[in-house]
Design a protein around this nucleic acid. Structure first.
Length: 578
RNA sequence: GCCAAAGUAGCUCAGUGGUAGAGCAGCUCACUCGUAAUGAGCAGGUCGCGGGUUCGACUCCCAUCUUUGGCUCCA
């Protein structure tokens, strides 16, 4: 018996076993498709009634029995008509059979009493599956063939592994993901909240969350000045003229907050910052000598995301983009792209993301702009990515209609990918707003426009940071960098003076003057994941020293206060994690 | 928007067709404490919101809002 089994084959076979189990329980079920996916499998069903978690247990029991019965998976090639006869009472399968291209073999797999239309491959017998190596995870809705016009089927997700040990490792990983959930940590660490009664998808930054945001923004602004950007501020609303000209009203009206009527004009909350930066550009005539312009703004935008799409900080209706627009002459394009990319990587690394992968998206079928501009811009993107030595994939035809782009995805501490930076060419807006500059030859020419966001949205980026660090931010980002914990009341005055001294150093300092016992104070500081806890009692007061408890439990006693101060300055300046 | 589940105190959750309960947090009092929860007491809820059924609804039904898991979408 083949022992080197492919996980994908195991998972796909597991999906068939699940379908058999579901049919055993509810024979009138119509089956759709059941592929292997990353970490597991799913199968879509058209069921006679909704499922409950109890059903998952029953299905699991049936699956275990099928696995233990050790029946073989038998492949058979059949004609189209035979297949149709076999699946006469399975409408979804009939549709799939019709979709198989002429000339392609139609194959079916049978295990026990269950036969499925399937290309395979499968394990030899259900004995190759491990009854302890799988778990049904969730029930969800899914459109037949992924089209929202089609009926909604019930999808059961499961995970499957070679054995129970591998399954447990994966389930531990899922538990880790749950522990890092930014919505949970946001509450526990008192960072932010959302209020359904005040409007879904709108974020309230609490003082502790706002401190993190301020640290992010302060760094962001400083680096932008250093890198040749100018910072601008623009309004939050604008007349419909802006969005008619930009084309947003045509394409995205349904995703915009509805209009506000005022003085016989229609105003909209901005879903994008671009037209506003363009207004600044259009405020005067520009010479080639002035370009490039690099204008950045932490611009808050509003988009009416569908109710079901909202998710914590990751998908919201009001958010702040770390946006910038570059207006460049065609011959500045290559250098500017290289610089933007280098800057992006520097920023991502500063926040602790060192595993970055690039995705270049090229011209889609429907697009605006000249072919030679698309070619040049796409070539510039590729060159820049290669120059930075980034690994990349090309998504042919995946660009927006207005220009090619690079997206940067980072891997977090537990290997999940998040898309953060994006650099996009825009051949549309310069045309629509008739942007020009006067070139050397005295002719008016069209500048290139590049949109870019390094962090994406501050809200989402914050969510990613929370999950990446599991709430234990590096000191430069931590809401409280230091908490002072007096052992007893007689150390209160000294502790307050110390707090003042440390604040004077620019540190974010908290002090625990509650009447809790020392143990409880440490526990509370630990739960807030404060990087440095200073225990202050008789010994420390006597010698101008501090006893430092790090949040990892490490403890160093009797550190001269001045030494501690310079240690923390160093860690913050170098943006180190401790 | 679609499918499904959920909504009970600030948080985490129990509970029942006869108008609600715990732990933590909060407040008060006592203890003044040396490395992950000191003890006692008090207070806190029109059980998401609106209808209906019923002698009686937090519980059953309908509608609605929101949240969660997915699907679709994501300029």
């Amino acid at each position: 018996m083949a022992k080197e089994l492919n996980l994908e084959t195991i998972r796909h076979s597991m999906a068939h076993v699940m379908a058999e189990a579901v049919l055993e329980i509810m024979p009138e079920t119509k089956i759709a498709i059941g592929p292997a996916i990353e970490n597991g499998f799913y199968y879509d069903f058209d069921l006679p009634r909704p499922l409950t978690d109890a059903d998952l247990e029953t299905i699991t029991e049936h699956m275990k029995a099928i696995i233990k019965s050790g029946v073989p998976f038998e492949r058979k090639e059949v004609s189209r008509d035979e297949a149709k006869a076999l699946f006469a009472d399975q409408p979804y399968k009939l549709e799939l059979i019709d979709a198989i291209p002429e000339g392609e073999t139609v194959s079916i797999y049978t295990q026990g009493k269950f036969t499925d239309l399937c290309r395979g491959p499968h394990v030899e017998t259900t004995k190759d599956l491990n009854a302890e190596g799988f778990k049904l995870l969730s029930i969800a809705g899914a459109y037949w063939r992924g089209n929202e016009k089609n009926p909604m089927l019930t999808r059961i997700y499961g995970t499957a592994w070679k054995n129970g040990k591998e399954l447990r490792v994966y389930l531990d990983h899922l538990a880790d993901i749950e522990k890092r959930d930014h919505r949970k940590l946001g509450k526990e660490l008192d960072l932010f909240s959302l209020h359904e009664e005040a409007g879904p998808g709108l974020v309230y930054w609490h003082p502790r969350g706002a401190r993190v945001r301020q640290a992010i923004e302060e760094f962001w602004r400083g680096e932008h000045y250093k890198n040749g950007y100018e910072l601008v501020y623009t309004p939050h609303v604008g007349k419909s003229w802006l969005w008619e000209t930009s084309g947003h009203l045509d394409f995205y009206k349904d995703s915009m907050y509805p209009k506000m009527e005022m003085d016989k004009a229609d105003y909209y909350a901005k879903p994008m910052n671009c037209p506003f930066h363009i207004m600044i550009y259009k405020n005067s005539k520009h010479s080639y000598r002035e370009l490039p312009f690099r204008w950045a703004e932490l611009g808050t935008v509003y988009r009416y995301e569908k109710a079901g799409a909202l998710h914590g900080l990751m998908r919201v209706r009001g958010f702040t983009q770390d946006d910038a627009h570059l207006f460049v002459t065609p011959d500045q394009m290559d250098d500017e792209i290289v610089e933007v990319l280098r800057f992006s990587l520097y920023m991502l690394h500063s926040f602790g993301f060192n595993d970055v992968h690039a995705y270049i998206s090229t011209k889609p079928e429907k697009s605006v702009g000249r072919q030679e501009d698309w070619d040049a811009a796409t070539a510039a993107l590729k060159k820049a990515v290669e120059k930075e030595g980034l690994s990349y994939d090309i998504d042919e035809g995946g660009g927006a209609f207005y220009g090619p782009k690079i997206d940067l995805k980072v891997k977090d501490a537990i290997g999940r990918e998040w898309q953060l930076s994006t650099v996009q060419f825009d051949f549309n807006l310069p045309e629509r707003f008739d942007l020009t500059f006067v070139d050397k030859d005295g002719q008016e020419k069209r500048p290139f426009m590049i949109h870019r966001a390094l962090l994406g949205s501050i809200e989402r980026f914050f969510g990613v940071l929370i999950e990446h660090y599991a709430g234990a931010f590096p000191p430069w980002l931590s809401p409280d960098q230091i908490v002072i914990i007096p052992v007893g009341e007689n150390a209160f005055d000294y502790s307050k003076a110390l707090e003042k001294r440390l604040r004077g150093e620019g540190f974010r300092v908290a002090i625990d003057l509650s009447d809790d016992r020392l143990n409880a104070k440490i526990r509370n500081a630990q739960k807030l994941k404060t990087p440095y806890m200073l225990i202050i009692g008789e010994k420390e007061m006597a010698g101008d020293v501090v006893s430092v408890r790090y949040r990892n439990g490490k403890q160093v006693n009797g550190v001269p206060t001045a030494d501690f101060i310079s240690e923390v300055h160093g860690v913050i300046d170098r943006k180190e994690q401790i």
